[in-house]
């Protein structure tokens, strides 16, 4: 059965000034999948990820060509409101970046600016469910007023995931979310991703192939700004079509 993709990128090019960073990338993201973007560093996977919620807008020299849709709607259409888009397509960054606020306020920040809660109770509930969904509730329920920066690295990253969830997004982009974490914290995040699958479309950039194999259903292999191969994770890792993919996966370079 043919599924409709949640997000669809068609012939996307990205330029930083004269530098051609992404070359003709086409990729479908499905709502119920975790999609992993892998590839050697500098291959453009993070750049591509940042196109999906227009985070490249803040870089003056960046220019995006091609078409990216969210539910068949072009997100680079001038009529599309970037604030709204980013609320629907959330993002988690490489290094945990909690705001210099309390744990509660970190989570409540998004709902507050978007006016998602009608009263304090609703806000409390949103904060609690977000923390529960991010698997952080048990650890922080007694210290919601503690600063977010006081948490450990892994907790901070789950706080950032909870923060993204609180805005009620449809897609969550994760840019190497575990690269700054130790193995135990990484395992927890991976567990969380598995937990969140199905409720959010998840796109995760990772340089760790085992991680991609563990958490994702679809995998795209990026190389020098192009998608070399895209397909079911199982196929990519067991039976890659392209020679380059095979070389990368078997550790010949990267």
């Amino acid at each position: 059965m043919e599924k409709t993709p949640k997000m669809q990128a068609t012939n996307v090019h990205v330029y930083y000034g004269d530098n051609h960073a992404i070359n003709k990338v086409s990729l479908d993201v499905f709502a119920e999948d975790v999609t992993a973007l892998i590839g050697p560093s500098g291959c453009g996977k993070s750049t591509f990820l940042r196109c999906l919620n227009r985070m490249n807008d803040s870089i003056a020299s960046a220019r995006v060509e091609g078409k990216i849709t969210l539910d068949q709607q072009d997100i680079y259409d001038p009529k599309i409101d970037v604030v709204q888009l980013r609320a629907r397509v959330g993002m988690v960054f490489q290094k945990p970046n909690p705001f210099p606020k309390s744990i509660y306020d970190n989570i409540a920040y998004g709902p507050r600016i978007h006016g998602l809660a009608r009263n304090g109770e609703e806000m409390d509930e949103m904060v609690i469910t977000s923390l529960q969904k991010a698997g952080l509730w048990e650890e922080v329920k007694d210290r919601l007023e503690a600063p977010g920066t006081a948490l450990s690295g892994g907790q901070q990253q789950r706080l950032c995931i909870a923060r993204a969830i609180a805005v009620n997004p449809e897609v969550i982009l994760m840019d190497e979310p575990c690269s700054a974490l130790d193995p135990i914290a990484t395992a927890k995040i991976e567990e969380l991703i598995e937990d969140l699958r199905g409720r959010f479309a998840i796109v995760i950039v990772t340089h760790n192939m085992q991680q991609a194999a563990r958490v994702s259903q679809k995998t795209a292999f990026f190389h020098l700004g192009e998608v070399i191969e895209y397909g079911d994770t199982a196929d990519i890792f067991t039976n890659p079509e392209k020679e380059k993919t095979k070389d990368y996966i078997t550790g010949r370079y990267g």
């Binding site: 709204q84 609320a87 959330g90 970046n97 705001f99 600016i113």
Partner: peptide
């Protein structure tokens, strides 16, 4: 203030002024 802080707020759909007033200035 690290760029990541600003990005984190923008990625949640905050406008620039909201980011400045509620994240950058406190930071």
């Amino acid at each position: 203030v690290p760029e990541a802080m600003r990005d984190g707020s923008l990625a949640l759909g905050a406008t620039r002024s909201e980011t400045i007033k509620q994240v950058l200035i406190p930071a």
